[in-house]
Design a protein around this nucleic acid. Structure first.
Length: 212
DNA sequence: AACTCGGGGCA
DNA sequence: TGCCCAGAGTT
């Protein structure tokens, strides 16, 4: 058991009493598409395009009909739009043809869709299907390593260890907490260690002050 | 294991 | 205006 976890949970519970997904939840299909789009960009950028996009195109059939070029125009502002347009359209086709027009509810099947890796699959499982998972994005990965809750460069190992160490009823909250903390305080570059309440529990900070 | 895809935000 | 940020697929 990671010894500072109680303190960390206590701090986050106060600071973020009711953490929620930044991606606006719609249908499971739309959440899947929004999550595919969110790779290598921010939820803010994705939310800028989804309202208009889902107003024009609602269901898998609507996306399956589009040409790559048509969809590229709609989502250009999120970047990596050629890949993502292809992933979205091909995933839509696969959902229709292979999964009876239902977003699959298993991780294996979700990860079989183009553009869906483990992080995206876990986000969909957690938010669309209320399965208890910890999706490991770059924030979760970085913050968990810095705090010293995990010590690994393997994403799958971060997920595994967090699920072992964090009480199950906190998995979803913990996921959001590390993301918020990673964005606002424990940033990839120039983290605000001085103002961070968790610094006395943080391996990264302790190493910083030791190193000078 | 390294490379590719690409825009927005910010110093 | 150039650097940094954020996942998945391919080679």
């Amino acid at each position: 058991m990671y010894k500072n976890l109680g303190k960390i949970i206590e701090y986050f519970s106060k600071k973020y009493p009711k953490p929620e997904t930044a991606l606006k939840f719609m249908t499971p299909f739309q959440l899947l598409i929004a999550t595919i789009m969110s790779a290598q960009t921010t939820d803010v950028q994705v939310n800028k395009v989804t309202e208009k996009l889902f107003n024009k195109f609602e269901k898998a059939e609507d996306f399956a009909k589009l040409s790559y070029e048509e969809l590229e125009k709609e989502i250009k502002s999120i970047g990596l739009y050629k890949n993502k347009s292809k992933y979205i359209i091909e995933s839509s086709k696969m959902i229709i043809n292979k999964y009876s027009n239902e977003v699959p509810k298993s991780r294996e099947k979700l990860m079989n869709l183009p553009g869906v890796g483990r992080k995206t699959a876990n986000v969909v499982l957690a938010n669309a299907f209320k399965q208890n998972t910890i999706a490991v994005d770059t924030h979760v990965f970085r913050v968990a390593n810095r705090l010293g809750i995990v010590n690994t460069d393997k994403t799958d190992q971060v997920e595994k260890t967090l699920m072992e160490v964090v009480p199950e009823n906190y998995w979803s909250k913990f996921h959001h907490w590390l993301i918020f903390h990673g964005r606002e305080v424990c940033k990839a570059r120039n983290p605000y260690c001085q103002g961070c309440t968790l610094k006395s529990y943080c391996k990264y900070y302790q190493n910083q002050i030791k190193g000078g």
